[in-house]
Simulated assay, not measured.
Amino acid sequence: MILVTGGTGLVGAHLLYHLVKNDEKIRAIYRSEERIKKVQEVFSFYTDDAINLISKIEWFKADITDVPAMIPAFIGVEKVYHCAAFISFNPKDYREMRKVNIHGTAIIVNLAIDANVRKICFVGSIASVGDSLKGGLITEENEWNPESDNSGYSITKFGAEMEIWRASQEGVDVAIVNPGVILGSGFYTAGSGKMFTQVYNGFSYYTEGITGFVGVKDVVAAMIKLMNSSIKNERFILVAENKSFKEIFFSIADAFGKKRPTKNIKPWQTAIFWRVSWMLSLFSRKEPLLSKYSARSAHSVSKYSSEKIETTMPFQFEKIDDVIKEVSDRYVNSLSQNRP
């Protein structure tokens, strides 16, 4: 039995399809029936038999931070894909991120140890990989610096990764992937998916910060290969290409046949905007449109190396422009299907 946490998120939904396609026996954690419908939508990108494939999954309703509810989920489980996470750059969400990302992962680890799980594959993030000190490519050897001005998300993802390493010391084999910004179909109102929605609706702004990007199908493929291999107690950066946000927004616009964004936002402008946004949120009690850390990441330049996964497996990544074209096409199709 394979247990998947976060099965109704971007990575989890695409992962579930590939596991089901391989006739694996799967149990997936979910929190609401509405989220399962989103998984069915993702399955429909791959097959006309989505409903039948969804029915092969044993859906288990629980919150990963609820120990009594999670104990039965581990009955008969040999492998765990831990994809669940709380992603936010809003400082107000820090406590909730600690609860889900660190405490929730600690619970998963403890229950995995008790259940004699053989292997855990954990979806980390490049946010928990250290910066390059000399401006070179960032690798798995770069150490995360706790004294840096890290975002709450970075802190909690690093803390979650430490819990996974604890599992490796308690006899459970682990494989950790640290993906860059994940691009994939099916989730267009949050995370990286919002970029597609914004550009389609005529978003005019871009920045020239650089980071690593990767397609969700590559993330899933790497996870499955690592889980089914003899590789253990290793971490792997998953970045297909290092690109600027300008390049990404331009590529999305081209894929949609839309006008490219024309306004280059400078660091000093976002520095003002996030402060104003924060002040307004104090009165409106709504989430700020931009946070200090999301503003900073929009301009920072960080380049990552995936040489380790490429040479260990070996593994070949899909070009980001091809990923963007596929996601954009599916976005347009989803719009046409939802029109009355």
Rank of each mutant, 00 (worst) to 15 (best):
R166Q: 14
F245N: 02
T189C: 05
V177Y: 00
A190K: 07
E140V: 13
K308E: 10
A13M: 01
N116H: 13
D149N: 10
I224R: 11
I36F: 13
N90P: 15
A85C: 06
I224C: 12
D131S: 15
G202C: 13
T197N: 07
E58R: 14
N142E: 10
N201T: 08
G6V: 05
D49M: 14
G152E: 00
I309H: 13
L133Y: 15
I155L: 06
N90R: 01
F43Y: 05
E78A: 05
S277N: 14
S88L: 09
G215C: 02
K263W: 07
A295V: 08
C83S: 11
R296S: 10
D321F: 05
S55C: 09
Y200R: 03
V77W: 09
V129M: 05
T139R: 03
A50R: 07
I324N: 00
V181C: 12
S32N: 10
E33S: 08
L111D: 04
H18T: 12
A298T: 06
V123P: 02
K79S: 13
A221W: 00
A222R: 00
K25G: 08
S88W: 03
V327P: 00
V214I: 13
L53A: 13
L133K: 14
Y200S: 03
I248H: 01
R235V: 02
F89R: 05
Y304K: 12
V100F: 10
I265K: 01
E170D: 08
F317R: 02
P146W: 09
Y81F: 15
Y46I: 05
M195L: 14
H299I: 04
L137H: 04
G130N: 11
K79L: 10
G257D: 14
V67D: 09
L280W: 12
K225F: 03
V20A: 14
V199Y: 02
N201K: 09
G136Q: 15
N101E: 01
P91F: 03
V129D: 01
P146K: 10
K99L: 10
A190R: 08
K308N: 12
F256T: 05
D149W: 10
E310F: 03
I324K: 01
F196N: 09
F315P: 00
G135H: 04
F256H: 01
V42A: 02
K266G: 12
Y205L: 12
E24Q: 15
I324R: 00
A85W: 01
A84Q: 03
S154E: 06
T65V: 08
